[in-house]
Write a protein that binds this DNA or RNA. Structure first.
Length: 440
RNA sequence: GCCGCUUUCGUCUAAUGGUCAGGACGCUAGGUUCUCAACCUAGUAACACGGGUUCGAUUCCCGUAAGCGGCACCA
């Protein structure tokens, strides 16, 4: 396999490039780490797809390199223009900032010029309006894959493949090779499913006399059924996950651990920490399975690490109908009790609406007296606690029964944040009112 | 059919030519507790199979099986 670069040819190609910006030659050129996330705008990328972007980003930033975004919009039929914005939004939500941006549809001229070069070498021929690459049989195509090691194919199993479609747009095989070279990509991160296509790409690199980049073929994230991740199994977009109450930090942390692991046993990593620790040699070869339980755990971990104000803000934003002042007071009480921002109402909606009471386990008369006692209590958790405990003792009522009863009536549910604090926040008048209404 | 990739607890994974094969999620039990969480303790469960190589293989080699992927004018 030829790894020789023809400098003359290479320079000719360079001048064809439309993209401006720094362009180095010589050894420097191969040293700079440059990677790209190259989605096709045919929909909103799901979380598995975004993981590829994350790995790209982590590696680039770990190496002080560049992370580029390349929109692969060469399929006119499947193109959904709005998805470009969704792709960007997904990256932004996770904090994955890209350094440069390209759109293949703006580079048609470049592909044409490169086709001409191939024609000149008699390596491309027309077929029904499209152009095919002429595959030389009997060759061995191999590369040292960053995650899989040596992979080898015979060119005998590759047929002449289309590089320019009859509509004038290039196919992935052609465009990605031309672009990766032109954009000086050092490492190509992509899904495993591209392994079988890589020999084609190698052929194109050879045809131009270019040195191929390193290939990093990532195993795909699978569903619990060991099949390609379906919507049902979790193949939702980052945007959806965030709407469902997941934190970007948790999503990033979770995704990074699907197919990668650090040197030690630590599990909680911010994007910045991941960037510092990331290394290619710790990427796994086998396909991980998407596990919502673990995502939930990461989310609860990140939720509790959030500054209280941040969490309040998120809850207020998610539930604008709730009194923000009360939400603020409730936040410290529920921070360790929820695994998801959207769990908030399940625990706290009785602060904002009068619930239907559950049954008391103590006599109504007892509750009536409790309510009376509350009237003269100076309303804070400590005093409420004293009041209830003193009452239980003096009236020979089981404290637990009393608490359960108050909770059942005031909150209308068996599970709430700690009762004394809850009553304090709910307010004296409202607490007494709910008790009285029940006994009446 | 042809070509290729993969295989450690249910799941994410670590490690190793000699280990009680480690951690985490989940689950179970107990403790703590006003409920739920949180927290603490304990428990549960894995080297796909068969051959080699070796004093010794989960680890190295070769097969087999299973799973997955590719073989488009889609990426």
């Amino acid at each position: 396999m030829s790894k020789v670069i023809d400098p003359k040819r290479s320079r000719v190609i360079e001048t064809l490039s439309l993209s401006k910006g720094r362009r180095t030659t010589g050894p420097e050129r191969s040293r700079r780490i440059r990677v790209r996330y190259a989605p096709s705008p045919t929909g909103i990328p799901h979380i598995g797809n975004i993981r590829t972007a994350l790995f790209n980003y982590l590696f680039a930033k770990n190496q002080n390199g560049d992370f580029l975004l390349r929109i692969e919009d060469t399929d006119q039929n499947r193109l959904i223009p709005e998805s470009v914005e969704k792709i960007k939004e997904s990256l932004e939500l996770l904090g994955l900032k890209w350094d440069e941006e390209e759109h293949q549809s703006k580079r048609l001229e470049i592909y044409k010029k490169h086709l001409d070069i191939l024609k000149g070498k008699d390596l491309a021929y027309e077929d029904d309006g499209a152009w095919r690459f002429k595959v030389e049989k009997g060759k061995t195509l191999q590369w040292d894959d960053v995650v899989h090691g040596q992979v080898k194919f015979s060119s005998d199993v590759i047929e002449d493949f289309i590089i320019i479609k009859s509509d004038g747009f290039p196919t992935y095989h052609f465009a990605s090779v031309v672009d990766d070279h032109d954009m000086q990509i050092s490492h190509v991160f992509r899904g495993d499913e591209w392994i079988s296509s890589t020999p084609k790409h190698l052929l194109i690199y050879q045809a131009f006399g270019w040195e191929p980049p390193k290939f990093v073929h990532l195993p795909p994230i699978l569903g619990a059924d060991h099949k390609k991740l379906s919507k049902r199994e979790g193949a939702k977009s980052v945007i959806e996950y965030i709407e469902e109450g997941y934190l970007p930090e948790a999503i990033v942390n979770f995704l990074a651990f699907l197919g990668w692991s650090p040197k030690d046993d630590r599990e909680i990593f911010s994007l910045e920490e991941l960037t510092r620790e990331f290394s290619l040699d710790r990427i796994n070869k086998n396909s991980p399975i998407f596990n919502l339980e673990k995502l939930n755990w990461f989310n609860s971990q990140w939720l509790r690490r959030l500054p209280q104000k941040e969490l309040s803000k998120k809850i207020k934003k998610a539930f604008p109908r709730y009194d923000p002042k009360i939400v603020g007071k409730l936040t410290p009480l529920i921070q360790k009790r929820i695994t998801n921002v959207n769990d908030f109402p399940k625990l706290c909606n009785f602060f904002f609406e009068v619930p239907k009471p559950l049954d008391s386990v103590v006599e109504k008369g007892v509750l009536s007296k409790v309510a009376e006692n509350f009237v003269k209590v100076s309303w804070n958790a400590e005093e409420i606690k004293n009041s209830i405990e003193d009452f239980a003792q003096s009236q020979k009522v089981d404290k637990k029964d009393l608490i359960v009863s108050i909770r059942n009536i005031v909150a209308g549910r068996p599970v709430t944040p700690p009762l004394y604090e809850s009553l304090e926040i709910l307010g004296k008048d409202e607490t007494i009112a709910r008790l009285k209404k029940y006994v009446s």
